[in-house]
């Protein structure tokens, strides 16, 4: 048995024992939004109604730019996930032996669009990015903050 055959046989043995498993996975959540759909939505002109008609319902809505009179704008977030990737699971196959290793190329970062509207509900700005970068921090303190 030459080296290649020995390596293949070893890999097959490991796989048969559940030690090494390759994975190819695809995760799709909601419909991706193409950049072209935002083309007609010009800041300073497009209204909230225009944006809802063009993009449908957002995933999240946030309070934005609250004035002293209580008037507020809002920020709307659309996000989706469409990722595929290879992964590899390596485990001992024995619960008494620690050392299960998993590698997954599908990351948790989601792309999205955020649109900000002023109190007049006219689009102020739009930005594409990762959800973690786009979503604002808490705007109102929770009761536990004192």
């Amino acid at each position: 048995m030459n080296g290649a055959a020995r390596a293949a046989a070893t890999l097959a043995l490991l796989a048969t024992g559940g030690c090494v498993t390759g994975n190819y996975g695809h995760v799709s959540i909601d419909e991706p939004i193409a950049d072209e759909r935002l083309g007609p939505l010009v800041p300073g002109r497009a209204t909230l109604a225009d944006c809802l008609a063009a993009l449908g319902a957002p995933n999240r809505v946030f309070e934005y730019a609250v004035g002293s009179d209580g008037a507020s704008g809002m920020a709307l977030l659309w996000s989706w996930r469409d990722q595929a990737g290879w992964g590899l699971d390596v485990s001992s196959g024995d619960d008494s032996i620690p050392g299960s290793v998993s590698f997954d190329a599908v990351t948790a970062e989601l792309p999205g669009y955020m649109l900000w509207f002023g109190p007049d509900l006219v689009l102020q700005r739009a930005r594409r990015g990762l959800v973690g970068e786009l979503v604002p921090g808490r705007l109102r303190p929770s009761p536990s903050d004192g």
Partner: peptide
């Protein structure tokens, strides 16, 4: 030796 998986989730909102 290898597994293939797919997950498709979509919402009404």
């Amino acid at each position: 030796l290898v597994n293939f998986g797919n997950q498709d989730a979509r919402s009404d909102r």
